[in-house]
Design a protein around this nucleic acid. Structure first.
Length: 199
DNA sequence: GCAATGATTTACT
DNA sequence: GTAAATCATTGCC
């Protein structure tokens, strides 16, 4: 059981990092509540050449965090209502990021229910990037938070995920990216019910 | 300064 | 299946 080090995030192969994050545990501790969940679905966004990535249009105020060194959080409001949680990877000047699309709730389910306004835990609690953002209490003000801080980090509890259960597929809802939309940069745990998308 | 739009979810027709 | 909710960032005037 240990916190993933900065060196894990600062490697250059964003797709590899996205794949290795599956099975790891996301931990947030703020608002007096601790919430944790096992990551079951991720998506990789690879820099300016990846048209699905926000950094494809160049360095702006919003994408500034992604250009920094890996190991920080990139939190972004989409469609006016959903907080998306991304992990910045690679080094300075390379805008790579991994989007956490779904997790399996472990601790702090009561806090998640309170934040999402649900009455009991079900499969929709954390299956989808917007729901993960809400359930874990992410806010735009936490943009840039270090992933080795006490309040936000990812741990490896030694859980060994069967490599045969890791599936790579085309990303979701990025059709506008043209050919890039079909890159196999989405990774998820085969058969896990918390994975978002069609069954 | 103003208008267009998107890494989504939910509720309704 | 389709539409509405809802706002920061962006690009153009």
């Amino acid at each position: 059981m240990q916190k993933l080090p900065l060196s894990f995030y600062q490697r250059r192969q964003v797709a590899t990092i996205a794949r290795e994050l599956l099975g790891k545990i996301l931990v947030t501790q703020w608002d007096g509540m601790r919430t944790t969940g096992r990551i079951v679905e991720t998506e990789a966004y690879e820099g300016e050449e990846d048209r699905a990535c926000h950094a494809a249009k160049g360095r702006t105020g919003r994408t500034e965090v992604m250009y920094g060194t890996g190991g920080r959080a990139y939190i972004y409001l989409i469609y006016g209502m959903h907080e998306m949680f991304n992990i910045v990877t690679s080094g300075e000047g390379e805008p790579h990021a991994v989007l956490i699309r779904a997790v399996e709730p472990l601790e702090g389910i009561d806090a998640m229910l309170e934040r999402t306004g649900k009455k009991k835990a079900d499969l929709t609690l954390t299956s989808g990037p917007g729901r993960v953002g809400r359930a874990f209490g992410f806010r735009r003000t936490q943009n840039g938070t270090s992933l080795i801080s006490e309040e936000l980090h990812i741990i490896d509890d030694g859980y060994c995920l069967d490599q045969n259960l890791i599936v790579a597929g085309p990303r979701i809802n990025v059709d506008y990216a043209g050919d890039h939309a079909h890159w196999p940069y989405r990774f998820y745990v085969k058969g896990n019910r918390f994975v978002s998308g069609k069954k």
